[in-house]
């Protein structure tokens, strides 16, 4: 599976309060959440992001609250993949569970600048910056997580297992 689009670049510790501020958590509608995505760190994001674009960031992306509204907002805004040096653990888990593609890439914060054209193979983890010509290999996922992602997220995975009569 390949994704290609423009980069939105951010630094370290992009927290869930700036990804989707709590004042908008009185809804669970993905489109409404997307309209406020990244609002407190990048007010122009929601208006300028296009389907297939990338978020590229530094360490500890998604730190803070457990709100799944964060990956939901990013996914609904059309972002094809978040590439970061590391992810906060609940965000990492939520992304896998909800089917938002993420790639952990050492040094991601210096891999792309805002507006760079990025291409990524979500299966192999190969990331290319078509603007600079740089190529890098992201970390792979353990087979169990690939299985969840392959089922479209945790719900699909659990539904399949329950239907098969197995424990989770």
């Amino acid at each position: 599976m390949e994704a290609k689009g423009k980069a939105f670049a951010y630094g370290d510790n992009v927290d869930t309060d700036v990804i989707i501020p709590a004042r908008y958590l009185n809804t669970i509608d993905p489109a409404e959440l997307a309209s406020h995505c990244m609002e407190d760190i990048d007010a122009s994001f929601a208006a300028s992001v296009r389907t297939g674009d990338f978020i590229v960031a530094g360490r500890n992306f998604g730190c803070g609250s457990s709100r799944e509204h964060a990956p939901i907002a990013i996914k609904a805004s059309g972002v094809a993949c978040v590439v970061a040096s590391s992810f906060a653990r609940i965000f990492y888990r939520n992304a896998i569970n909800t089917g938002l593609p993420i790639l952990e890439l050492a040094g991601a914060e210096s891999f792309a600048k805002k507006g760079d054209e990025i291409r990524a193979d979500l299966k192999t983890g190969l990331v290319e910056n078509l603007t600079t010509g740089a190529k890098a290999q992201a970390m792979g996922f353990p087979p169990f997580m690939r299985e969840i992602m392959g089922a479209g997220g945790l719900i699909g995975y659990v539904r399949g297992r329950l239907a098969a009569g197995a424990r989770l």
Partner: peptide, 28 residues
């Protein structure tokens, strides 16, 4: 809720997860 880790105070293991984890956990 991310602050679910609070209960480690009493020697329990507790951790924050997202809503989808919660949904699956309520079922299984």
């Amino acid at each position: 809720d991310s602050h679910t880790c609070t209960y480690g105070a009493v020697g329990a293991f507790s951790t924050g997860v997202g809503s989808t984890d919660m949904a699956a956990a309520m079922a299984t």
